[in-house]
């Protein structure tokens, strides 16, 4: 079984080395590593060259982290991987827990696994405002998707071949938000599951969630969610 671990990077030049080292040293699975750079404007590319890590670079920024996931699906399909694991470049996810998100897929239990920090509630729990947002959307998605979702914006995920093929071959649309991705997967009949993981707090770099975005994000998510609800099944 061939597994690809994608590390999503956008201007994480200061921390990307730590993230890569974590995967190289502590990964609890056998996996290829690919960094997907969303056209960073900092020293990221020099870092990636120096670290001699395999990387793919977007020619322009996709305007959000979901664009990286779409590329990862296309790449995983093109190179015939069986499983694609996703990690954020800011070293918040733990390579030592990769087996936890891969196991339910390897055993053919589900198609997609999300690492959730809100099941055992250990480790970094994010800010209060952020938690409210995540919980509300998780609730909403649990209601629509008829299964418990607990950490809906979590980037720490594993997808099987069925999911890879669906996004690489069938779903040729841009995805705006991770919440929308979740809904699309539900409609596509992909079975999902959350497993408990821990996360680290963000050490450096800029989060997608700043003051302006704190207001923009819920709206943006809501709009794309409702739109996807209307679009529904194919």
């Amino acid at each position: 079984m061939r597994i690809l671990t994608v590390i999503s990077n956008y201007n994480e030049g200061e921390i990307i080395e730590k993230t890569i080292e974590d995967v190289r040293k502590n990964a609890s699975i056998v996996t290829d590593i690919l960094v997907i750079d969303n056209c960073s404007t900092d020293s990221s590319i020099e870092q990636l060259k120096r670290l001699k890590v395999d990387y793919l670079k977007h020619p322009v920024n996709t305007g959000g982290s979901a664009g990286v996931i779409k590329t990862a699906f296309a790449y995983a399909h093109y190179h015939g991987y069986d499983i694609y694991c996703h990690m954020d470049g800011d070293n918040q996810h733990m390579a030592s827990e990769l087996d936890k998100i891969v196991e339910p897929i390897a055993s053919n239990e589900v198609d997609v696994v999300t690492g959730s920090r809100f099941i055992t509630k250990e480790g970094f729990q994010s800010s209060f405002a952020r938690r409210i947002g995540i919980h509300s959307f998780s609730r909403l998605m649990s209601w629509v998707g008829r299964r418990p979702y607990s950490d809906i914006t979590s980037g720490f995920r594993a997808y099987n071949k069925k999911a890879i093929d669906y996004f690489a071959l069938k779903f040729k649309q841009e995805i705006d938000t991770i919440v929308q991705l979740e809904l699309v997967m539900h409609y596509a009949g992909l079975k999902g599951k959350d497993v408990p993981v821990q996360m680290r707090p963000r050490e450096t770099g800029k989060s997608e969630i700043n003051f302006v975005n704190a207001f923009k994000f819920p709206f943006y998510n809501m709009i794309s969610f409702i739109g996807t609800l209307i679009q529904k099944p194919k």
Binding site: H58, P59, A74, Y75, Q173, E174
Partner: peptide, 17 residues
């Protein structure tokens, strides 16, 4: 256009790699 752009960005990235 944004759907096509996403496809192109992904594919250029893969080809460049």
């Amino acid at each position: 256009m944004s759907d096509r752009m996403q496809e192109l960005i992904s594919h250029i990235g893969i080809l460049d790699h």
